[in-house]
Design a protein around this nucleic acid. Structure first.
Length: 838
DNA sequence: TCGATCACGCTTTTT
DNA sequence: GCGTGATCGA
């Protein structure tokens, strides 16, 4: 029976616990204090889901399920009630005596597994947990699917016939391996391109389909061929002791499925499981979660079906749609209040996403004000677009914004080029996230390959990469001979090299191979006797890589610097991990790290990245560039409704990154991959309600447009006199909207009927011809205009004095000392620069 | 076996 | 437009 004090204590304790967790709205609080059983949190963009996750974990660890109404605080008496009242009133820490009354079977930090999408998100989670819980926060398992799997595989890989020190293959390694498969099977890559084979195999693994399954019932000849190369590829990887990215998940699921003791161990280890970004999980990842959490059923997943943007990589939105079937009795909580964006931005996002079918359905709302309207800029070219972005950033910085508050988002990495060029010349500091990773550079990959063969001597693929780098007179024929002998004997290539003189086929090359073997031995020795970072820098000498680069001159110089960076990251790793540090450990970290993980908000620079990379981030000012049909939505998605909906979700993700202001832009012409294209404005622009947007057209774009219209009118006149067939031209203009430039060709219920809301400068329809400057790059005064001593005003850096002027091909480098920004070099033709007098 | 030259193709998004 | 790979000649 509950005593009167117990009842009183229960109520007080509820209040006390809730007071421990910052301000949460009622729905968030519900999510935080739902401690046990399956839970699906549908969290809209900017709804504070990370806060919920952090608080939920912290509550589990500090108070367990003590908040639940079923728990009775047995034996609580007047002293406990009195102390709790005091704590509630004036704060402070509970006494040791009180603590047992406050919690109920609390959860050990290492019993919690939190899976996030990037390493960076995992790190943030840990940091926030540490801030709330101290040391215990560090003991929570927070990682990506891939690194969680690697940790399990490092213990258990032996059961699958893989070495403890297995290698992780990236996409480049995959291609090399597949190329060898093709060669050995005599397959022409014209029939089945390498990349599609690799992609198809990846999708099979995402669905947990084994090579045998795939071979047993191929749907068609192509599927049959895929199954065959899949089988051969997999054998090759096993031989090399290597997993590719998809294998990491696949193999772990297999391990948990087939080995009961392993499964039970990890089920008990991870009593509480949380999965973030659940909308982007694959079938295999679902099975992993289910195998780990199906028993205790303390599985909490967080996701937003509207932000699912990795279908192309095997993510299946069904996971989130079917969660309640997978975990019967699951509780569902919806976080729909947005704390991030202005309501104009949010409404724009809602406008776009509501065009998708098959959503779980939710509408975000906010108590934030309307804010500014969205700006849409219609540029003439991609350079014009870049110039405009730079100019707006300049204005914002002048008003007190930081450069780092600005993000420029695009559909594909190739779009960063013109912006980069413009910013570099204008002297605007920026950073690109994504694109080519540091670890993808050739010299770095070479170094990593050397390290790989020391860590895992079976790794023939990495061996092939560096056996003749630097040149050691070991040519393709020799390598092939070694590979053939190794394959015949079922041993590694290194083993064949060790005994090279024994094989007649290698007689001619045995001196060169002997030389390589001695290098390998010296590497091994260095590895055994030296600290990790010393070993890596020693490697440069032993392999002769340094001398090779030194002979290369300037290019080699920068490569040396990159390798220097690698050495220092090895050192950082070794320092951080202490005795735990190992070579396989470092290689694994490198393999699983992505560029976004190292994105540092601290540096005051503009950030450029794809919308995919921007997922989970937020910025005060966001630019989405290249909103054109064929770019975004991409050309590839044009003919598939499902792909198009994914593009739309990506657009939704992009828009909802913005907190204060959102700038959209498109260009009338764009050079991409060496070809100039004239794209229509994106349908996504059309979908945003006109009342939310202010449209601005660049003067140059207006002029180009006027010219094109004149041309078209001439064509029309010609066609009419010649054929009297007005219909022939309609295809030329079909789809152009009234709002975003060009001729309107009334597309029914679309934008044609909307009120024109453009600024005065925008000419809508046929009649208006724009007068304006033809300059595609605005407002510069020409190279000769600056002299040392001149006072100038830069749009981003403010006032400064010209120090030095150096003419270069067609332009001038102007070195300026700014009042606040220090000394910078800018290009006169590009920098947003003008003269001022005092 | 090596080096230079040429042609080719390829670009959605990424752990 | 770029980098990579293939090919050719030495």
């Amino acid at each position: 029976m509950e005593s009167q004090f117990e009842t009183q204590f229960l109520a007080l304790r509820k209040k006390y616990i809730e007071a421990q967790f910052g301000k949460l709205n009622p729905v968030q609080r519900d999510a935080v204090f739902t401690t046990d059983g399956p839970l699906l949190i549908l969290a809209g963009a900017g709804s504070g889901k990370t806060t919920v996750l952090v608080n939920r974990i912290a509550n589990l660890i500090r108070f367990g399920s003590a908040h639940s109404s079923t728990y009775a605080p047995q034996g609580a008496g007047p002293e406990q009630v009195a102390e709790l009242e005091r704590l509630l009133h004036s704060g402070g820490e509970p006494s040791e005596a009180l603590r047992p009354f406050l919690r109920e079977h609390t959860v050990r930090p290492y019993n919690v597994l939190a899976i996030t999408f990037t390493n960076k998100a995992a790190g943030e989670l840990k940091n926030r947990l540490s801030a709330m819980l101290g040391e215990a926060g560090q003991d929570v398992n927070a990682s990506t699917f891939h690194s969680a799997c690697v940790r399990i595989l490092r213990r258990e890989a032996g059961r699958l016939g893989y070495p403890q020190s297995f290698t992780i293959y990236d996409t480049d390694d995959q291609q090399r391996a597949m190329k060898e498969v093709y060669k050995s099977m005599n397959i022409d890559d014209k029939f089945l391109p390498l990349k599609s084979a690799i992609g198809a195999i990846g999708r099979l693994k995402d669905k947990m389909i084994s090579p045998q399954d795939a071979m047993s019932a191929p749907a068609d000849t192509r599927a049959g061929l895929v199954a065959k190369v899949y089988d051969a590829y997999q054998k090759r990887l096993l031989q090399a002791g290597a997993f590719d990215f998809d294998d990491l998940i696949y193999a772990t699921v297999k391990l948990l499925r087939d080995f009961e003791d392993v499964r039970e161990y990890y089920q008990n280890r991870f009593r509480y499981i949380l999965v973030d970004e659940y909308q982007d999980t694959s079938v295999a990842q679902f099975q992993l979660v289910y195998l780990l959490g199906g028993e205790h059923r303390n599985v909490c997943v967080v996701g937003d079906d509207d932000q699912s943007i990795y279908r192309f990589r095997g993510a299946t939105i069904e996971n989130i749609l079917n969660f309640e079937q997978h975990f019967p009795g699951a509780k569902v909580i919806r976080l729909e209040q947005n704390y991030r964006s202005t309501s104009n931005i949010l409404n724009a996002a809602n406008c776009v996403i509501k065009n998708n079918m098959g959503r779980k359905g939710k509408t975000l709302w906010t108590e934030n004000g309307n804010g500014e309207k969205l700006m849409c800029y219609e540029a003439d070219s991609e350079f014009d677009e870049a110039a405009h972005v730079a100019a707006v950033i300049g204005q914002n910085v002048k008003k007190g914004a930081k450069l780092r508050d600005h993000a420029i988002l695009y559909r594909m990495n190739a779009q960063s080029g013109p912006i980069e060029t413009y910013f570099a010349r204008a002297g605007i500091p920026y950073k690109i996230v994504g694109g080519q990773r540091f670890y993808d550079r050739k010299e770095i990959k070479d170094m990593l390959a050397y390290m790989s063969i020391v860590a895992n001597e079976q790794d023939d693929l990495r061996l092939r990469r560096i056996i003749n780098e630097p040149a050691r007179k070991i040519g393709a024929t020799t390598v092939q001979n070694v590979a053939d002998i190794a394959a015949g004997l079922g041993v590694s290539m290194l083993e064949v090299i060790e005994h090279a003189p024994d094989y007649p086929a290698l007689a001619r090359a045995s001196a060169a191979l002997g030389g390589f073997w001695r290098i390998y031995r010296r590497l091994k020795e260095a590895y055994d006797t030296m600290p990790l970072d010393v070993f890596v820098s020693e490697m440069l000498e032993i392999t002769g890589y340094r001398s090779m680069l030194e002979a290369e001159g300037e290019e080699g110089q920068t490569r040396m610097e990159n390798i220097g960076q690698l050495v220092s990251s090895v050192k950082t790793y070794a320092d951080q991990r202490g005795p735990e540090a190992s070579l396989p450990g470092f290689l694994e970290e490198v393999a699983l790290i992505s560029d976004i993980d190292s994105y540092d908000e601290g540096a005051d620079v503009v950030v450029l990245m794809t919308m995919h990379a921007a997922k989970g981030l937020e910025f005060n000012y966001v630019f989405i560039v290249g909103l054109e049909e064929g770019i975004f939505p991409s050309e590839m998605s044009r003919y598939s409704n499902e792909d198009l909906e994914e593009e739309r979700r990506l657009c939704y993700v992009g828009i909802t990154r913005a907190k204060k202001e959102l700038y959209l832009s498109c260009a009338n012409s764009r050079m991409l991959f060496g070809q100039t294209k004239h794209n229509r404005p994106s349908r996504f622009l059309e979908e945003i309600d006109a009342s939310l947007v202010e449209v601005e057209q660049s003067p140059a774009a207006a002029q180009t447009k006027a010219m094109r219209q004149r041309y078209m009118q001439q064509q029309n006149a010609y066609l009419q006199t010649e054929y009297g067939a007005a219909s022939m031209r309609s295809t030329v203009q079909a789809g152009y909207s009234a709002r975003y430039g060009g001729a309107s060709h009334g597309s029914g219920a679309g934008g044609a009927s909307r009120p024109a809301r453009q600024r005065a400068s925008v000419g809508g329809g046929f009649s208006t011809v724009q007068a304006g400057s033809a300059a595609s790059v605005p407002r510069t005064e020409g190279s000769g205009a600056y002299r040392p001593g001149d006072l100038v005003e830069h749009k981003v850096f403010g006032r400064g004095e010209v120090l030095k002027v150096t003419p270069v091909a067609g332009d001038t480098i102007v070195e300026i000392r700014f009042d606040t920004a220090g000394v910078k070099k800018t290009m006169a033709n590009y920098a947003p620069l003008k003269h001022i007098s005092e």
